[in-house]
Design a protein around this nucleic acid. Structure first.
Length: 572
RNA sequence: UGGGCGAUCGUCUAAUGGUAGGACAGUGCCCUUUGGAGGCACUUGUCUAGGUUCGAAUCCUAGUCGCCCAGCCA
């Protein structure tokens, strides 16, 4: 998982974990032997109704990380209690993404494995007079539930006999009734200030085909009736979930206590929010279905499969999640923080290459016509063990259009007429003249070079202000470059006017495709998901859409550009 | 206007009654064969009002603000 080229072990300071309240709870529970001699058992319980996103990465790191830290284990459990929204495709992608992030589960579980047990427990609750079949319609149930400020009313079916409830519930299971005609409810308290306790629905009738159990069942347990018991069956000690479930905790405990089963405990923490990033599975599904993006793994998406395709690394995502911490406040982390940890990781590990995205032809007039030579270039200046490679150089090269200005603005260090600069690892050159097309656009720059400066240094100790990347024109290969920008224009994508939607905040320029790029020839050997730093430009990785004749590179992130900042200031 | 949860630099997060610290972002300088990386320095914070205490970010009271809950979704 770690780069084999990295010999130095992680520094001790990186091992020093930031304290957090979840760890405190576990330490205390272990100290007081709250679960006897049981080890820490956690679970990561996604519903297979979409792809995992970076918000899930936080839950995964917490569930797996904390258990591992205390010598416990973690199950991957699919919370598959709603066949109408769930699919095998999602089950598969979730497993792949958890593994990619760097975690492996002790047991692979499904809430659907527990349907028979859950059913048996429902019978038990009915027999104890704690559950009843209700014939009210969904609308009527809502009306009886009352409001946030007013208590609810009992259903007229609330006091059915145990025998009648048993009979009706069994017939629900046997498929005698159509969808929506009856539900099984827990008999708790219709006047509770916590609306979750106003006789919550335990089972609904759903004649739907489940991705695992097929047509075996036509009644399905609700989340509240399935989750705590599933935890209990797996003897989960610490069931971590996000804050919005806090109000469900009394119900979670009610089922466990009334069933007298293993007392798993729910602990809530805050969700991850990131600026300019949408982290709602439902809304991400909408982006996919309505083709605002090209799929769940479109590199502009916040899904783990999109981050993978874009060139992000699991290491950086884990570091980010850990740096971001966990608490019970609702905030939003600046996306710059994620980008920082990704650049930091890639800077240390990514091979360098030279690529010119927006080429300008440069002719070296005093270079021997037709000559080619090879210059030696470090594969990664941050990592000498990465070695070197030979890069072809000749008298006609491409440089970045932005690297030449006929009239240089203040503080501009790059090439301009009469100015000397360094071509990285090659020679000093001095611009002499420009060639323009009929419209007055610069199409070619003519230079002279100093043969004594081979390798990039002049024997006389002459200094230059700038070093530029380049690609030899005859040796260059072409590629399609996909430049990604933020998918949304607002720090909070949900910040839209009344009646609007996140779609109003979609960035129309989130994808730009460049077809003119010229790359050094070694890049022809790149494999999908290989990651590079194109020097002075950014981090890139080969997209799976690539073919040998049509290379496609995704820009993971641009390199930090301090010139852009200076230019802005000088221009202002 | 019921119930629950929360509030510390611009952002995220530590400090568990005893020096308000770190990271990101920002600013300046140094260094640099990537205007990358790196180094150094700097700036900015305990929601408000009371109270308890030798001492309060931390405990108490009241207020203010924010988030969540009225699916046969999870």
């Amino acid at each position: 998982m770690t780069n084999p080229n990295t010999e130095s072990p992680e520094t001790p300071s990186q091992d020093a974990r930031t304290p957090n309240f979840l760890r405190d709870i576990i330490v205390e529970d272990l100290r007081t032997k709250k679960f006897g001699d049981a080890v820490v058992q956690t679970r990561f319980p996604p519903e297979p109704n979409g792809y995992l996103h970076i918000g899930h990465a936080k839950a995964i790191c917490l569930d797996f990380g904390l258990a591992d830290e205390f010598g416990g284990t973690t199950n991957l459990r699919f919370d598959d209690t709603n066949p109408e929204k769930e699919e095998q495709e999602y089950v598969d992608s979730i497993q792949a993404d958890v593994r990619w992030l760097g975690f492996d589960w002790e047991r692979l579980c499904y809430a659907s494995d527990y349907f028979p047990q859950l059913y048996a427990w429902a019978i038990k609750l009915i027999e104890a007079g704690k559950a009843y079949v209700d014939d009210l319609t969904a609308d009527e149930i809502r009306q009886h539930r009352g409001t946030l400020t007013e208590p609810g009313k009992n259903s007229p079916f609330r006091d059915r006999s145990v025998e009648e409830n048993l009979d009706l519930f069994k017939r629900m299971k046997q498929g005698e009734f159509p969808d929506g005609t009856r539900v099984l409810r827990a008999k708790i308290d219709m006047a509770s200030p916590n609306v979750n306790l106003r006789d919550p629905v335990m089972y609904r009738i759903l004649h739907a085909t489940h991705h695992r159990t097929g047509d075996e069942w036509c009644i399905y347990p609700m989340y509240d009736y399935a989750h705590g018991q599933s935890d209990s069956i797996e003897r989960v000690t610490h069931s971590m979930c996000t804050l919005e479930f806090t109000d469900h905790q009394p119900l979670y405990r009610w089922f466990i206590e009334n069933l007298g089963i293993f007392p798993s405990q729910q602990i809530e923490f805050d969700r991850l929010n990131i600026t300019y990033t949408l982290l709602s599975k439902r809304k991400l599904l909408q982006l996919v279905q309505e083709h605002h993006v090209h799929g769940w793994d479109d590199p502009r998406m916040p899904t783990l499969s999109a981050f993978r395709r874009r060139g992000f690394t699991p290491e950086a995502i884990r570091t980010f999640v850990s740096a971001t911490g966990v608490s019970r406040t609702n905030g939003s982390t600046d996306i710059e923080m994620l980008e920082y940890f990704q650049r930091d990781d890639l800077n240390r590990r990514a091979s360098r290459a030279m690529a010119v995205l927006n080429p300008l032809r440069l002719v070296i007039d005093n270079y021997p016509a037709g000559q080619t030579e090879f210059v030696e270039v470090a594969n990664n200046p941050e990592d000498p063990s990465a070695g070197t490679r030979q890069v072809p150089f000749s008298g006609e090269i491409y440089i970045e259009h932005d690297d030449f200005r006929e009239v240089p603005p203040p503080k501009y260090y790059r090439l301009s007429p009469g100015k000397e600069v360094r071509l990285r690892n090659a020679y000093f050159i001095t611009a002499q003249s420009v060639v323009k097309d009929a419209a007055g656009n610069i199409v070619e720059v003519h230079c002279t070079y100093d043969p004594a400066s081979r390798g990039g240094n002049s024997p006389d100790g002459r200094k230059v202000k700038s070093t530029m990347h380049w690609v030899s024109a005859v040796h260059a290969i072409s590629a399609e470059i996909r430049i990604y920008d933020k998918l949304f224009t607002k720090p909070d994508p949900n910040d839209h006017p009344e009646g609007g939607s996140v779609l109003d905040n979609l960035n129309p320029n989130s994808l730009e495709i460049l077809t003119t790029a010229k790359l050094e020839p070694s890049l022809a050997n790149a494999k999908p998901e290989n990651r590079f730093q194109f020097e002075r430009v950014g981090y890139f990785c080969l997209d799976p859409d690539s073919t040998p004749n049509n290379l496609v590179f995704n820009r993971t992130l641009p390199i930090k550009d301090s010139w852009a900042k200076i230019e802005k200031k000088v221009g202002a």
